[in-house]
Each structure stands twice: as structure tokens, then as C-alpha cells.
Amino acid sequence: MNHDVALNELAAVHGAMAEFNTPEEILAAAERAYAAGYRQMDAYTPFAVEGLAETIGFKKNYVALAVLIGGICGVTGGYSLLYWITVIAYPHNVGARPLHSWPSYIPITFECMILLSALTALVSMLAMNGLPKPYHPVFNVPEFDRASKDKFFLCIESSDPKFRTEEALEFLREVGGSEVMLVPA
């Protein structure tokens, strides 16, 4: 197995991966992996397993912040647009109402806020996830098809400073992976 170690040194493996049958099993395994000091890990599951992201040390995401910024841009942008149209670009006296008639700006400003926030939610979620990404090393594993179906995968990545191919594979076997495999880069 020196061969594998050599590959590891050349970063030709993406990581070591184990397959689990239930969310409970992968949660327990992820907990032990984190306790064993592994930090560069990822789990692949057919639905969002509650608490698993936190278990592998992923605690915070910035989608909400991005959406807040998007919403604020929507409000200011929408309101400024209406102000600009009705006061600067095309001042039009309707029944002696003031040009800056803010109550009638509310509906469009509100819709602009929703539109920008929703588009930001989509774009920021995809961008922070690095999607679209047609190729990823985990797709090289034949069993990985089932990650979108009924199996749960835990992958310790070779970029982890503690990662040694043999040790990682042995560790994953120990924590109860029903199948353990190497992910080629």
C-alpha cells in the first residue's frame, strides 16, 4: 500500500470516503472523526441531516447576510428609481399632488425589495456553494450515485493535515462505514 501513500503525497487522492446507511450512523461517525482531529471533511447526504454540518465544524453561513444586503439594495434602488422618475426625469403635476408622493411609492419599493432579496438568495446560495460545478472528484466513486438516493457518505479530505491514506481508511472502517473507498482526485 506504499503506492497509496505516494499518491497521497502527490495529492492525487481527494480523500477517503465511507458509506453509511442511516443518518444516525453518519452523525455518530462524523462526531468521532471530529473528535479524532479531522477538520477537512465533508458529508454527502440525500437530504439535509440535522446537525451534521455543525458536527463536522461547519457552523455559520452567510446567505442570510447576503439576502439582507440584497433587500436593502432593492429598497433603496426601487425608491430612488421612483423618486427619479417622478421628481427629476418626468415631473408631472397630477391634481396638485406633491411630486415626491411617497405613499404611492410603497408598493413598487416593496416589490423591488422582494425581487432583489429573492434573486440574491438564489445567486448567493449557488455562489457560496461553488455551483454550478459539473466536475467534482467525489463523482469518480461509482457508489456515489446513491448519495442522491438513500446512502450517506462521509469523506475525509486529503487536504487535512492529519490525513494519512491508510489511517483514514482504517479509521472510517472502525467508525462503522459499511463500505470504505478511496476517492481519486
Binding site: 454527502y44 439535509a48 441531516v49 451534521l52 454540518a53 446567505v63 429573492a118 460545478k133
Partner: peptide
């Protein structure tokens, strides 16, 4: 779009979905 079910992706995904529901 190359979705692979990474739990980190799910984490952001759920947040985005919740916010979209809240906006809708």
C-alpha cells in the same frame, strides 16, 4: 448544476429556502 448533496451545501440551501419562503 453539479449538486452533490454536500452537507455544507445543504446548510446554505436550507437557509436560502427558508428565506425564500419568508419572502414569498
Amino acid at each position: 448544476l453539479g449538486w452533490r448533496g454536500s452537507i455544507k451545501h445543504w446548510h446554505r440551501y436550507n437557509k436560502a429556502y427558508l428565506l425564500l419562503a419568508g419572502l414569498s
